[in-house]
Write a protein that binds this DNA or RNA. Structure first.
Lengths: 336, 336
DNA sequence: AGTATTTCTGAAAACGCTTTCATAAATTTG
DNA sequence: CAAATTTATGAAAGCGTTTTCAGAAATACT
């Protein structure tokens, strides 16, 4: 009883509807017109027999897999997790199914995974961040369309979905300045990460534009992990520099910073103001709730899913614009 | 130039190695012995031509897809995210590729996704949490082996990988008692969630066993989201009950609780001690760092991946034992 | 050596669907 | 109304593997 999902093939439904299998295939794929009565008969048979097409036969015959490969970079980052989540959402009602692999932020792994996806004959790929070379991407893109999320590749502009890190960092810093801060420290992200540089540049530019000299002693190199935020505070304090605010290149590091400050008995924001980047879920519940830049990671992922779907369907479309927002909470004080 | 990954089929390598395609297939799949020289010749041809098997042809002919379907339940929970991550890791060097879909904690969606996976002919499935009925699971399991993570189904014992929520909650509560607390509040999880009940029961049992009467006014219903932790504190305070510690059914709610306390100027742990469950990544960086139960979500996922792999390979194995650990940080004070 | 076994190996038949090609039917055109 | 087109439909040829079935070759046994 129940769903006897054994071997219902188009042959069976062809028999049931008294047509040829070619006809069945045609109504199923919609690749050609078929007469009204037959059309209906087929549909009915499909329903009656609860037909489920065999993906392999389809794939083999058509060369299409109806899957898109997704390369993520995990290593516990809420921001990237959220992107993945958004991609999943974006494929919810799509004919394509995502197949996810992890690049671990290691180019070798990433390349291996990319090959795996090729072997699986994905119709398209979404690559989240990562460090694959333009040449490789280009080569692969020849046969399998690629969309890149959260990474900006000048040679690949029309395939990159990202937010303007420079501008966002600029605005975050500007906000601090508007709140009366002039001695602003920055904890930057991983050195070899493009976003890090962009955010750092935005920070510097905002300072310059406000006529505040950029002091290198006030920027310390982090790696996006909370622990590095903690260390950064120690470094800053050791350097003996005075500052009234810290702009962190992501929320995770801001958490580390906040803990270091707590340990030292330094109050936030009374003594030091703090601003982050990413708006990861927990940031709203920090003590105090963190003011941060919210890039809408989920949106990024969703857009990527839609974007590649359309590319695969050959529909023209503009590159989706990605926005961000400065969400103001309670970690920044107005200096008078 | 480069990887001319056009159409290298076993036919080509058969020609190149001067054998029949049957022989090629045999050395590739290892399903039968073939003579030493031919064996080597084939391998060499494979390397020389950079052969990549066609998954569809394979799948069609063999009926195996070499993929396992994973149903996750997202809705922004670090705990479940970590499990997914673990599953991904577990399949890293496996011949199986995971294909992930999201059930959104909604049984209807979950069932639809399950059907999608069936359509994709997955060889096995991993279901993370969720609320699918035993009957449905059993039906599907007849043809596609299923492993269930983070959910305990008595009828399906040998396929469920989970930690002992009751015991873990018991120990967390016991720890609080040992630290001198006697008025311990509990913020429970989502009402219809099995884990919630187990954790609540563990809490109650620990109290009883210590000779402390269970007071219903000290337990308030949450839903695993941070916001509900915040509300819970308000509720507790409104009820006018006195208490010195709060045990939350997960870390997210503990964050909400902590924020509510902060708003009220109540110190942690000086005034109120706090303990959570899950050890999500950010918990180590709360102010103060949160004492919590760490179930090793990643392990759970990894185990599930290994477990189903072995089931598919027909190798006998014991059900992997899942452990947890009370990680003691700074959110609980010793009451004297 | 002659026969009975056991191993290898190739030919060919699936696997379930898409798609080309040809034909029959329906429509248009002169 | 016959001829020229256009459409709808079925037969059959793939798509790239695996696997069954039989021989052929090698090995073992009397």
């Amino acid at each position: 009883m129940g769903t006897q999902r054994e071997k219902i093939t188009i042959q069976q439904i062809a028999d049931h509807a008294d047509v040829s299998i070619s006809t069945v295939s045609r109504v199923l794929s919609g690749n050609a017109k078929v007469g009204a009565k037959k059309h209906e008969a087929v549909l009915e048979a499909v329903k009656a027999l609860n037909y489920r097409p065999n993906v392999f036969a389809r794939g083999l015959a058509s060369g299409q897999s109806m899957t898109v490969g997704v390369i993520t970079q995990h290593i516990s980052s809420p921001f990237y997790d959220a992107i993945t989540q958004g991609i999943l959402e974006g494929f919810e009602n799509s004919p394509y199914s995502p197949i996810i692999v992890d690049g671990q932020w290691k180019p070798e792994v990433e390349e291996r995974m990319l090959r795996t996806l090729q072997d699986r004959q994905v119709d398209g790929m979404i690559i989240v961040g990562g460090g694959l070379s333009y040449d490789l991407l280009k080569e692969v893109n020849e046969e399998t369309p690629i969309v890149i999320v959260a990474r900006e590749l000048t040679e690949f502009k029309d395939r990159c979905i990202y937010i303007d890190n420079f501008q966002a960092a600029y605005e975050a810093t500007q906000y601090l300045i508007r709140m009366g801060h002039r001695e602003i420290a920055h904890v930057s992200g991983k050195a070899d990460h493009a976003d890090s540089k962009l955010r750092l540049d935005g920070y510097k530019q905002a300072l310059s534009d406000a006529g505040i000299p950029v002091r290198d002693e006030l920027v310390v190199q982090g790696n996006f992990l909370p622990q590095s935020g903690l260390l950064a505070v120690e470094t800053l304090l050791t350097r003996g520099q005075s500052f009234s605010a810290i702009f962190c290149a992501n929320d995770q590091m801001a958490m580390g910073v906040r803990l270091a400050l707590y340990r030292r008995g330094i109050r936030v924001p009374a003594d030091i103001s703090l601003i982050g980047f990413d708006d990861q879920p927990s940031s709203a519940f920090m003590t105090p709730p963190l003011t941060t830049v919210k890039p809408s990671a989920t949106e990024l992922g969703k857009s990527a899913a839609y974007y590649i779907s359309n590319i695969l369907k050959n529909v023209d479309q503009p590159l989706p614009e990605q926005s961000y927002e400065l969400v103001i909470r309670e970690s920044v004080a107005h200096l008078r």
